[in-house]
Every structure is written in C-alpha cells, then in structure tokens.
Design a protein around this nucleic acid. Structure first.
Ligand SMILES: [Mn+2]
Ligand SMILES: [Mn+2]
Ligand SMILES: [Zn+2]
Ligand SMILES: [Zn+2]
Lengths: 125, 125
DNA sequence: ATAGAATTTGCAACTTAATTGCAAATTTGA
DNA sequence: TCAAATTTGCAATTAAGTTGCAAATTCTAT
C-alpha cells in the first residue's frame, strides 16, 4: 500500500484508498461511500492540504481527484472528452518535454498542467 | 481590425472588441460595458459557439475569454497565479513542442491546453 | 471499561458562476 | 413606417462547493 495512505483514518482513509485506484469526482465518491457531500468535500479539502491527493478540473468546473504520489502516480497529462467530460489519465511527460515547456513561462513555475481535449473512444461509437 | 470582428453587432461586437485587446472574465466585461450579466453570458456563449472567442478557466472555475484568431492571437499557454488567480497569456508553443506533446494522447486531439501555475510578479512583492 | 476531550459528521443554509423563461425593448428590413 | 425578428433586463433557477452548529463518533488517559 502507498505510504500516502498511512496515518489516515475514517473517511479520509476511505476516500484516499478509492482515489489510489482511480480518478473520481466528489459525486462519484459520494456514490461509493455513503456520507454527506459536506463530509466528502471537507475530507477532499483536508487531503488536498496534506498533498495526499491532487485536483483536476474539467471544463464544466467539476473537480476530479487522484492520489498525489510521485512513485505510484506521477503528475501526468489528462485527456478530457468534449462530449462526456470524462477525464482520462495519460502517461507522464518525460523530463525533456517538461523542460521544453517550462521555457515558455516568464514566472517561476510551481506546477505544469497539460490537458488534451477531443472525443473519447466511448463517445465515438 | 481583425476579421473575427466583422459582421458582429450590438453587445456581441462590444465584447469581442474588448477581448481582442485583453483576456477578461465575465465580471470584468460587465464592469466595462454596463449590461445585465445574463446579456454578458448569452453573448459570450454565442461568441464561443461561433468560435470568435475562446475560454480559459482558472482554478476557481471562473471563465476568462480572449479573441480566438489564429493570426492575431494563436492558441498559447497560460500562467495562473495561485495567489490572485489572474491569468497571464504567454507566447505560443512552436510546432515541435506541440508535436512532442500530442504523442502523449491515445485519442485524437482537438485542442491542447497548457497551464503553468505559480506566483506572479505582482503577488511576489 | 469509562468518562471527558477532541475530532468528525449530518443537516440545512449559504455562496458564486452560470443558465433560463418570459415579457419588454430594441433592431431590422420590406 | 410598421410588423417580424432579435436582443435585453429581470428574477428565478441550477450546480459545485462551503460553512455554522449541534449531534455523533473516536481518541486518550485513568
Ligand atoms: Mn490523472
Ligand atoms: Mn491567452
Ligand atoms: Zn467521452
Ligand atoms: Zn498574482
């Protein structure tokens, strides 16, 4: 089990465990563990502050969450389907490509987000 | 004047003209031209549908808009300040870097979004 | 095991960006 | 100039996310 899940208890643990398997929205999490949405959002906020999970927003402003672990889940680009707005996780950029991108910023970079948009295979059928 | 502004009238024209100068949010637009927010949002939606403007969302889910013209304003990466959430427009990626990025997607790409996050010069002071 | 303290939860009200129905106002064009 | 078409303002609504507060749960020390 990923170290990020150590020392977590109650719903914070349940949520982090689910997110270690798959990127999920708050609503999807709520359908999996039966608790109030306030509890879901509070736990998400705590996990974000502890940097145990990270957030990816889709074009509708809906947050999706995944485990934030360099080893088990390094930061990577995402693909968003413009039909169903599902978020797909892609393989991480190699260091040369990250370097090439970072040259475009005149300010010091804390984080790089790359998102592709198009129509996913499910929605093409 | 950019061709994208031709054949536009009323508030659609006013909004597109302002956005041809500078990226702005709906609220910022409303402070510049004195109309109801419903009018602002309806015109924004029409301009997006006509592909005259494009939308960039900040991490708070607030939409920012800019002229969508290959010649006058090619698609480019953005920098978002994690303190003030202001969006800065950066210079466009060159074609080699776009090509390198597009290799990461297993699905056909309609659009690539690159966003850097960090602290802007204003907020560093 | 038990009691008190600390943490977590559910509920309901709230915030904010964005959307929508509808009637009034404005614009268009024959 | 006048009727039709488009655009607008207003108010109500939607949806994601937040917050205050009291009740429930969990933790810790005896
Ligand atoms: Mn991912
Ligand atoms: Mn821009
Ligand atoms: Zn899809
Ligand atoms: Zn700033």
């Amino acid at each position: 089990m990923c170290d990020k899940l150590k020392n977590l208890k109650n719903n914070e643990f349940k949520i982090a465990l689910l997110l270690s398997q798959k990127i999920l929205s708050a609503k999807e999490l709520q359908n999996l563990i039966n608790v109030d949405k306030a509890t879901i959002y509070r736990n998400i906020k705590n996990l974000l502050k502890k940097e145990i999970i990270r957030e990816i927003k889709n074009s509708n402003g809906v947050g999706f969450y995944e485990l934030n672990c360099k080893i088990h889940n390094p930061i990577h680009p995402h693909f968003e389907c413009i039909i169903c707005n599902k978020i797909y996780c892609l393989k991480a950029l190699n260091s040369e490509d990250v370097l090439a991108l970072s040259n475009y910023s005149p300010f010091e970079i804390k984080e790089i987000e790359v998102k592709f948009k198009g129509i996913c295979n499910e929605c093409k059928k």
